[in-house]
Design a protein around this nucleic acid. Structure first.
Length: 432
RNA sequence: GUCCCCAUCGUCUAGAGGCCUAGGACAUCGGGUUUUCAUCCCGAAAACAGGGGUUCGAGUCCCCUUGGGGACGCCA
């Protein structure tokens, strides 16, 4: 049997991370099995399913690299097929017309449930049962002639030859209805796998209010798509052997439904942030280079200098938007001074005097590198009866403006003598 | 209310009856490095929801309780 899965979102403007995870699992499962991953827009809600909303889904898929193997199917264009299926059921007596509830709106088409208990095997949850008395007939075509979700969903899955329906477990109840529909339509019943939901800290479904609920939020904040993919895949699935950091190919190779968790999982922004940082540092230097070029106007002036900066910064940058704030000072003489750091380190008794002396020592220092800048600084501190820290902190603020960053002496080496001396000088003038 | 699903450290999880003195990761705390920290290294604390079975033996199987969640639309 050919494995075919599909992601069938209803385009509403933004892609929720819960839905994205459903897409990821469908994609991983299909890729692992060498099958096809398909996309279907359930865009029958004319109000919300705007072209922009559809585009948002497509963009999210592209960003994550979840490209479907066949062109997307648009449910809104399959209305005829849905209606024909309803006619077929009507003619076979498997459906009937009724003004349900006596609304006066006219007659809707209702599907007749078989009237016997049902059981199906869920690939994640195991055997699921439902008694006949707990299943009621349901509307498949509204009185205004519009097909209802259940009908459209099943008819389209049949049309697309979907072999495995992998979706959120809020669809478990629907599955009994859907299976009955497949059977009534004389179509092979696919396998089902119901994934648990992603919940917030309160155990409630992760919603917009919880923040960062949409794919776009992560993209805008400069996170890596491969990190989001990795993290979301791991939220409810584990390859075992304590593996966590994975490339997409590793995930594809390792993914199986039987290792998917059946309980809900909570999204942990802290762990995601950490994982993003890990992916960042694993990235080729070339990618960092491009981001610096895009984020900082004159980063490309001196390629060798840029590479040296990246060498000391790559392991510290956790996401792209960090670059200007964390490394901007390397590329401009007009970097801002952190107020608190200035107060604490430069406005101390004697700090500027020491700094002035250090400038003199550095001016004649040759060669100027991590080792020599360190020993020169220590010697000076010693000669002045000061602690190295009394000098280390002020220099850092003087040359970078901020109280944190790479190891000081490596940073000085990268900046080079000319910049360091000039910056100390200017700092002395400014705060002296 | 009815039906359904779920349940291992704070969080994500490993665990297919003896390999569990319950392992890893994030977070937390402590120590070290860097005399910066939003880096790195080391260490610690931290869980099988409760109760009954089954079994020589249960985190692992069964039942009940409790707790959480979902579904009960002419929404998707």
């Amino acid at each position: 049997m050919t494995i075919r899965t599909r992601f069938a979102p209803s385009p509403t403007g933004q892609v929720h991370i819960g839905n994205l995870r459903v897409a990821i699992y469908n994609w991983l499962f299909a890729r692992h099995a060498g099958g096809k991953f398909l996309l279907r827009m359930e865009d029958t809600d004319r109000e919300r399913s705007t072209p922009e909303a559809v585009q948002a889904v497509l963009d999210a898929m592209t960003w994550l690299g979840l490209e479907p193997d066949e062109s997307p199917v648009y449910q809104s264009q399959r209305r005829q097929a849905h209606l024909e299926a309803a006619e077929q059921l009507l003619s076979k007596g498997l459906a009937y017309k009724e003004d349900k509830g006596g609304t006066g709106r006219g007659e809707a088409v209702l599907f007749r449930m078989p009237g016997s208990a049902m059981t199906f095997h869920d690939e994640i949850k195991g055997d699921l049962h439902k008694q006949a008395k707990d299943m009621k007939d349901f509307v498949i075509v509204r009185s205004d002639g519009a097909p209802v979700f259940h009908l459209a969903n099943v008819v389209d899955d049949i049309f697309m030859n979907v072999s495995h329906v992998i979706r959120g477990d809020d669809h478990i109840e629907n599955t009994f209805r859907h299976i009955a529909l497949y059977q009534a339509l004389n179509a092979p019943v696919p396998k089902f796998a119901h994934l648990p939901m992603i919940v917030n800290a309160q155990g409630k479904p992760y919603a917009k209010r919880d923040g960062d609920a949409f794919v776009g939020d992560f993209r805008e904040k400069g996170y890596l798509s491969e990190a989001l993919l990795n993290y979301l895949a791991l939220l409810g699935w584990s390859p075992g052997e304590d593996r966590e950091m994975m490339t997409r190919d590793e995930m594809i190779r390792l993914f199986t439904l039987d290792r998917v968790q059946s309980g809900a999982a909570q999204f942990d922004p802290k762990k995601f942030e950490w994982m993003n940082g890990e992916h960042m540092r694993a990235l080729p230097k070339e990618v960092h280079r491009e981001k610096y070029l895009a984020a900082i106007p004159n980063a490309g002036d001196d390629p060798a200098y840029l590479d040296a900066v990246i060498d000391v910064m790559q392991e510290r940058v956790k996401k792209w938007p960090d670059i200007p704030g964390m490394a901007g000072f390397f590329f401009t003489e007009d970097y801002p001074y952190d107020e608190k750091a200035v107060t604490k380190r430069l406005r101390r008794e004697g700090a500027l005097d020491l700094l002035a002396a250090l400038k003199e020592a550095y001016t004649s220092l040759d060669p100027f590198n991590a080792e020599t800048t360190e020993s020169a600084l220590r010697e000076l501190a010693d000669a002045r009866g000061a602690k190295p820290a009394d000098l280390i902190h002020p220099v850092r603020i003087a040359v970078s403006g901020i109280p944190h960053g790479p190891s000081l002496f490596h940073m000085l080496e990268v900046l080079g003598k000319a910049r360091v001396v000039r910056r100390i000088d200017r700092t002395l003038e400014r705060f002296g």
